[in-house]
Nucleic acid binder design. Structure first.
Length: 264
DNA sequence: ATGGTGGTTGTACCA
């Protein structure tokens, strides 16, 4: 006996500025669970009604003023929520919950890391690597089947960016970031669900800069957002897609939603 | 090679 459960993840770049397209996405796609990153709102001002009016009665938030912030909205109950501070600086970048079947769902917003890929010249880059280091340690301690989703701010494969060569020195695709993300993936034998269903080297991007004149024409995309699963739950994933059409909606996020369907 | 846009704020900062 299996029942389908569709989980979405979206870096929304301000949940309040994006109310219209979040509503449109939920009306059209109707995932059971939506994990948000970059909500950019304190918990007291989170727009509950935007979700509750559509049947997402279970809402758990970890926000802060102005920057960062994550949330999980769900049609199914969630329990045992926790928040890790993997940067040890108080930023709201993680929210984990237990699903009714015992699977853990971990929603993360990994730091972007600034512009210069050198921890001596740019502390933000060091913080990004250190954040990943703490996630590596955590991955070695998992006690439950786990799904890890979010904006990882790293595009690991050559085919995850529009030009591997042009981006080798650009934060998000540097060798040290790719190597560190590889160690994170190995630490719990995480399955990359995106590349399970859309095999390399097929084009697969989740982010396009606002700065392009025509994002679709230039198509300088990167796969910064990911959905991973531990080996005991990865076989339950039966489908995966990214919703590129959302990048064309009015007042878009620079990221697009990812959706995986699980049959538990 | 540079700068291009957008959100939160009400000024730079972050992405």
């Amino acid at each position: 006996m299996t029942s389908p459960l569709r989980i979405a993840s979206w870096n929304i770049n301000s949940v309040r500025a994006r109310a219209d397209i979040v509503g449109q996405f939920l009306d059209e796609e109707a995932p059971d669970i939506l994990c948000l990153q970059e909500t950019k709102v304190v918990d007291e001002l989170f727009p509950h009604e935007l979700f509750a009016s559509r049947g997402y009665d279970h809402i758990i938030v970890n926000g802060q003023k102005m920057h960062h912030g994550v949330a999980i909205v769900s049609k199914v109950p969630m329990a045992r929520d926790n928040r890790f501070d993997w940067q040890a600086n108080g930023e709201a970048r993680h929210l984990g919950v237990a699903l009714p079947n015992g699977v853990r769902l971990e929603n993360v917003y990994i730091p972007a890391g600034g512009d210069i890929p050198d921890r001596d010249k740019n502390p933000k880059f060091g913080q990004k690597l250190d954040f990943l280091g703490r996630m590596i340690d955590w991955s070695g301690t998992l006690e439950h089947p786990t799904i890890l989703v979010g904006d990882f701010n790293i595009a690991p494969l050559e085919c995850d960016v529009w030009s591997h060569k042009a981006l080798l020195d650009v934060v998000s695709h540097t060798p040290i970031e790719v190597e560190t993300l590889g160690r994170l993936q190995a630490a719990a034998n995480w399955t990359d669900l995106g590349r399970t269903f859309i095999k390399a080297p097929e084009r697969l991007y989740t982010w396009w800069s606002y700065r392009a004149q025509d994002w679709r024409k230039s198509d300088r995309g990167r796969r910064l957002d990911h959905m991973w699963a531990t080996p005991d739950v990865a076989p339950a994933a039966k489908g995966h897609r990214v919703h590129e059409q959302c990048r064309d909606w009015g007042k878009p996020s620079d990221h697009i939603p990812l959706v995986t369907e699980f049959h538990f």
